[in-house]
Write a protein that binds this DNA or RNA. Sequence first.
DNA 1: CTGAAAGCGCTTACAG
DNA 2: CTGAAAGCGCTTACAG
Lengths: 342, 342
Amino acid sequence: MTASPRRARRSSGRITLADVAQAAGVSPITVSRALREERSVDPVLVQRVREAADALGYVPDPAARALASQRSTQVLVLVPMLSNTLFVDLLESVHRVLFPAGFQPLIGVTHYDSAEEELLLRTYLPHRPAGLLVTGFDRSETARQLIARSGVPCVHLMETSEAPGVHCVGFSQVDAGAAITGHLLARGRRRIAFCAAQLDPRTLQRAEGYRRALREAGLYDPQLELLSPESSSISLGARLFEEMLQRMPGIDAIFFCNDDIAQGGLLAANRLQVPVPQRIAVAGFNDLAGSDQMVPPLTTVRTPRGEVGQAGASMLLGLMRGTPAPASCIQLGYELVVRGST
Amino acid sequence: MTASPRRARRSSGRITLADVAQAAGVSPITVSRALREERSVDPVLVQRVREAADALGYVPDPAARALASQRSTQVLVLVPMLSNTLFVDLLESVHRVLFPAGFQPLIGVTHYDSAEEELLLRTYLPHRPAGLLVTGFDRSETARQLIARSGVPCVHLMETSEAPGVHCVGFSQVDAGAAITGHLLARGRRRIAFCAAQLDPRTLQRAEGYRRALREAGLYDPQLELLSPESSSISLGARLFEEMLQRMPGIDAIFFCNDDIAQGGLLAANRLQVPVPQRIAVAGFNDLAGSDQMVPPLTTVRTPRGEVGQAGASMLLGLMRGTPAPASCIQLGYELVVRGST
DNA sequence: CTGAAAGCGCTTACAG
DNA sequence: CTGAAAGCGCTTACAG
């Protein structure tokens, strides 16, 4: 007696592939293929499909597409911190490559914390991102496995590695650290201190470069190093400057591992009326916004984060499309920017 | 003769709801409900389902969920620019509220460009975000309609409006601009200049506050305003300082619309050896990183972006869950931070 | 080059 | 409180 058809209708009112197919007089498959340019479709049909799609204002449903194809068009991008403007520049260039290519960056911030990175991976990997962009190589074994087992193409940014099968774009943080230290040496400095914050892998690589340069000059002294695990900031830089100067009054230069702490150091020098560079030369790293406006302007290393983002995203694009470029590891350069502070 | 069953198998190897259901000895629906706590389910079954899910390592497929429910768990967050650390702070607090609640922020950067904002909305709205967080009210009519027609709950940040049905969390940029100008007046300044960049709505609201305060004091002079459409930056601040001083040598104070240009102005003063605050008082806006370290330290207005993000995300959470809080518009305060530069 | 069928892994809408 | 059926809107896998 209950003859009412028990149909669970729940149309979302959305224009679907089927609507376009009907309007164009072809099958849904053909619409799908025509719109994605996946397989050769009769140009005449392609044209008809496109017109129908435009006329109806058809927009593919990303969820349906992701479910059917087991792949979304989002690209997970993991960076340590946005308060370091280095990563803002990096994200900007990544976006400029990925977005026009039909992929959307999904930004995750790890706060230099491997547990947070793991949580982000656990949360986002089930979304089946089309690709993955991560910062450096320092992560938990679990995170590493999550990435590997996901099968999602991954490119590492900011550091390089020669390990086989690894895709990366970066530059030598060690060499760059050695180069700026070498510059200070060339300027005649002999008691060159190193102040660092955060102590992430790249910072420690710069420390290594610093040590290498000083050892080669026979001037290395562990007492000249001040390493703080705190987050990098202008105010921390000011504190480190004062502390270093108090602890080792004989220093004639400081290499700060990042421009923000270097700027803080310079401001502390201004406040304490320590003549820079006469009494102490100050150098930074990364050439961040404002460094050229300091008094005196800050000598630093210009790092190619824009290019790293651009090249890394392009490499990932190749991987995602199945047409990877030959190189799996790109080593970019850096540039010494000598200004008034040294 | 072709007896082979024509089945299009394409299991992804993934653990599904059905697997959990089988293991727990219940129907898939019950698993779905137990895990989402959507409807009351027998506690005994819930327990069994949870154990089965844990044992199998079940992770729901976001794409399938989004397709079936017409709603993803992502929240689109649109900000103008990440190089303004104000928005980094905002995003940070938004993440802290949303992520633990099971929603993932999807960050979009508009670069203060309404066409870019439209493109982001067109790209991301089809993903059916669970919610939307946007900056201010200034957008194209098209963007406004895209948002309204999408039916996605939306909260506006950083500005407030009394329009009915609008959800927002912000503070009065006008009042804050007037307050800092009032402070300069109270310090006895009479020729108070205003330097601004970007000229986005919030900057112009601060300008309004500046004008209001000076008009009330009978000291308003349009010649004292220097408005640049360029992006805000430390180096632009330095240029604006020099230009302003050259154009109007009689000024005795400058209110910069944002701390980055104020910092640049302060550095220019250092370089040109213009005594601050003796010859010229300098004030900024937002209390960004580094302002407290300037020489002299910068007087500014501390704006509650962290609280805006926190309250805005919480309000959105209520909207998304269908349990909106009573207030649809929250007006927060700001705080004058008087330091050595005034 | 084109298509009919099945399936991706969930949730909605009904029923009981 | 629980479930069988249908459906969300695509793409894959086969065939021809």
